[in-house]
Amino acid sequence: MEAESEFKEYYAKNMRGISGWFKARAYTIERWLYAAHRITGILIVLFVLAHFYSTGWHPGLWWDALLGIIVTFHTANGIRLILAELGFAVGKPLLVKKPSQRPVSIEGVQRYLVVFALVLFFVLAAIWAYYALVVQPMMG
């Protein structure tokens, strides 16, 4: 018990700070998605502030396509997070039989949720890039 409360106290201080976001080794792919979700979120806030300050500002052409990658990733991963929050495709908790057993998101149904989010991300990013690189230049 003593060790557990010390553990909690250590993590409550958040000693790692921002570098803790990238401590993804030995974790599942969701850990990388979490870090990317935060980075893309911050980048979107920066874009939105510029978009407000100079109303309707856009970075233009290829940068717009890059913006699309950032926004569509945040959207697709956000849909995955909401589905997981509501309990969809989370799967039953696995009985841990041995210390080497991998976490539930690798062996359980949650794996499909990650695949779904990544596929959705690629599709949405492709549609956005089409509009940014083909449709917008035609509109002038």
């Binding site: 201080k13 958040n14 700070g17 935060r38 911050i42």
Partner: peptide
């Protein structure tokens, strides 16, 4: 932004 900030300054 608030969530990130209060996590940085617990």
């Amino acid at each position: 932004v608030r969530v990130i900030l209060i996590e940085m300054v617990p």
